[in-house]
Amino acid sequence: MIDDKSIEKKICEEFYWFHRHPELSYEEINTTKRIRQDLQNEGIQILDLPLNTGVVAQIGSGDQPVVAVRCDIDALPIQEKTELVYKSETNGKMHACGHDFHIAVILGAAYKLKQNESDLKGTVRIIFQPAEEAPGGALDVLRTGVLDDVQAIFGLHSSPLFSVGSVGIREGAVTAAVDHFEINFKGKGTHAAHPQNGIDPIVAASAFVSSIQTVVSRNVDPFAADLISITHFQSGNTWNVIPETAYLEGTARTLRPEDRQLVRQRIYEMAENTAKAYGAKAEVIWHDGPPATNNDGEWAAFAKEQAQKIGLDVKDSPYSLGGEDFAFYQEKIKGVFVQIGTGESYSNHNPHFQVDPAAIFPAAEYMAGMAADSLGKIKK
């Protein structure tokens, strides 16, 4: 049986390997093979599921209660700009969000749980989830039914805001619901010298861009953390023609379900009515993303106790309007999503982002202990 010192050495080596070999969402073929081999080498059961990438393993008796621990495994289309000796070997791809760290931590947690498998008072499912950045990999795992009998779920994320040895935990929402919208403003093209003969979609779309910010400033609670950003505006292709159409694209970020519904409704109304005011038409295309994370109060308190028990410094997780598809699990299963301090660094999704490997083993001990002790907390 692998001992703690060997576990620490092994998972640090694996972290370096995963960082050097990043793969994008739904392309994690070699990452999946490596994880499977790591698990098989320690005799950990791998469940047979209809997933093209990603792995779900199981440790324990196979009986109730059942809890789950989840990490994500995909990288980002970013050119790495660090000077790390183990920097990405794949041009244009990088683990810029710490998913390589997540894999190493949860591998370590799996090894720790396997060490003490006979003592587990139930079953722990270990999820190595693909395509968090897509997003949507969580939905693929849920569709397999492998979590239908799970009673609690635990997830983690690296945090460049916290030092090694600290963990951020908060009850309620930590990350936001993330929605993506597209809007096509349709007017009538004409010569730029004769605007009266057409309907200018650029004017209508520009008016919408200016007015949509009033949704956050005037329609929702000033203490709510909501955001609407227009990130793409495209229209026309030459200097002397008023075009037929203007295209907008953007994102809405909300923490509360009621705000999410209101913001969507107001974007539809303001697009359609602003267009109408200028004689144009607007078509809104809405893409629902993951909801806000929702840390259960009881499990958040438990996670804090577990962290303090092993000497981690517990802090409040900062609110973030970034998205996280762990929230899809939390719609069905109570649990908690924690922020693991990985040393101050550039922000996630930055080409200079990096984590301190010293955070790997303590985080693995923490996640393993939380999973094991949670089984005793759940009534059969």
Rank of each mutant, 00 (worst) to 15 (best):
K315T: 08
K315H: 15
D316W: 03
P318D: 11
P318Q: 12
Y319C: 04
Y319N: 12
Y319P: 07
S320V: 10
S320T: 15
L321M: 13
G322W: 00
G323D: 01
E324Y: 00
E324K: 00
E324N: 01
E324W: 00
D325Q: 07
D325W: 03
D325T: 09
D325H: 06
F326L: 10
F326A: 05
F326K: 03
F326H: 06
A327V: 06
A327F: 05
A327E: 08
F328L: 12
F328V: 02
F328C: 12
F328M: 10
Y329I: 10
Y329F: 15
Q330F: 05
Q330K: 07
E331N: 11
E331D: 13
E331L: 14
E331A: 09
K332D: 09
I333S: 11
G335F: 06
G335P: 09
G335C: 09
V336F: 02
V336A: 12
F337W: 13
F337E: 00
F337N: 01
F337Q: 01
V338M: 14
V338F: 02
V338E: 03
V338S: 08
Q339R: 15
Q339L: 14
I340N: 01
G341E: 08
G341S: 11
G341P: 08
G341V: 10
T342Y: 02
T342G: 05
G343T: 12
G343P: 12
G343R: 09
G343H: 11
G343W: 10
E344P: 01
E344V: 15
S345E: 05
S345H: 06
S345D: 08
Y346V: 04
Y346K: 13
Y346A: 15
Y346T: 10
S347I: 11
N348R: 11
N348H: 15
N348S: 12
H349A: 07
H349R: 08
N350W: 03
N350Y: 07
N350S: 13
N350E: 12
P351T: 11
P351A: 07
P351G: 07
P351N: 10
H352E: 15
H352R: 15
H352L: 14
F353M: 08
F353H: 05
F353K: 03
Q354F: 11
Q354M: 12
Q354L: 11
Q354C: 11
Q354N: 15
V355W: 03
V355A: 15
D356C: 07
D356L: 04
P357Q: 05
P357D: 09
P357I: 08
A358C: 08
A358R: 15
I360E: 02
I360F: 00
F361Q: 01
F361L: 08
F361D: 07
F361E: 02
P362E: 03
P362K: 01
A363W: 00
A363Y: 04
A363T: 11
